[in-house]
Design a protein around this nucleic acid. Structure first.
Lengths: 158, 158
DNA sequence: TATTGTTATACTCTATAACTATA
DNA sequence: TATAGTTATAGAGTATAACAATA
């Protein structure tokens, strides 16, 4: 399901193409994560917190994890000084999680370097093809989001 | 780096599009893996063994893991009856790893179901777009393979 | 009673270092 | 000496179940 046995070299079947592309992209992401001493789980955590300050419960839903898994993830990130916990103003059971300045800087740096890698990859195609591909991917993602619910932006990775 | 804050809904920037698409595809893979009680690591193991009978050392290289990690991975798969170890005929230090019939059946079933999911996803696009997308992805992967070494087929996922 | 979050526990996955047995 | 593989150990990541504090 991820290998490509005896296919024609220049013409992958569509399903294998999708699978292989996803592994290439994930490889780029993991490379930059590792370069910043981050695991993919931590990258997802920091990525979600870039434009949110959720409670632990909301966070676990955003990441698709159990509450207890989120506790451990946040514990380790907090120990590294990347995120912080603060009591909720409205519910004394709740905790609000947010990025520290250091966490924000780290995720921005990693995102920038991933962006450069991805841009290099796309640069392997001639400009016309590149634009076609981007447009088609946008349309596919939009159709997929629509077919699900309306879980459009921001949490496709969870 | 994985979130999509205030972009135009219908027009993701190309880099975010690639990242989000990779998460969607990985999500499909993980869903079918879980449906067969497999982790992604086990799926990669079984996938690599579909058309190979490597030694433990070769296997660790194919998967990009340390030898000891491969030992654990194969131990657990063997305990489940999915793979088997056999002594090498030529080097008494070596071990040859292969799929059992049960392992082969399992990876085939998972691959088939992932293929159906991926086909459904592509089916969200009109036929013309679908073919264009597949062609562009093929070209991108070919260019990427060429830009690396000649690590064409079979191990893009490692 | 229901919900939020943590703790206790267990398993998978991964790596490093040390070891055994071959070569 | 060098290589193939395993074992010992440690840490990240995940889940389930039980619990405390609050609602």
């Amino acid at each position: 399901m991820t290998s490509t046995p005896a296919d024609a070299p220049g013409r992958l079947n569509p399903v294998d193409g999708l699978a292989q592309l996803s592994f290439v992209i994930q490889g780029l992401l993991e490379r930059q994560a590792a370069a910043h001493d981050l695991t993919m789980a931590q990258v997802r955590l920091l990525g979600v917190l870039r434009d949110r300050t959720p409670t632990m419960f909301e966070l676990s839903r955003l990441l698709g994890l159990d509450k207890s898994s989120a506790t451990g993830l946040v514990d380790r990130a907090e120990r590294r000084g990347l995120v912080q916990r603060a009591p909720s103003a409205t519910d004394r059971r709740s905790v609000q999680v947010s990025l520290t300045l250091e966490g924000r800087a780290l995720v921005s740096a990693a995102a920038a370097r991933f962006g450069a890698d991805a841009t290099d990859l796309l640069g392997l195609l001639p400009p016309g093809d590149r634009e076609s591909l981007s447009g088609l991917i946008s349309r596919l993602l939009a159709a997929h989001a629509a077919s699900q619910g309306i879980e459009l932006l921001g949490t496709t990775e969870g």
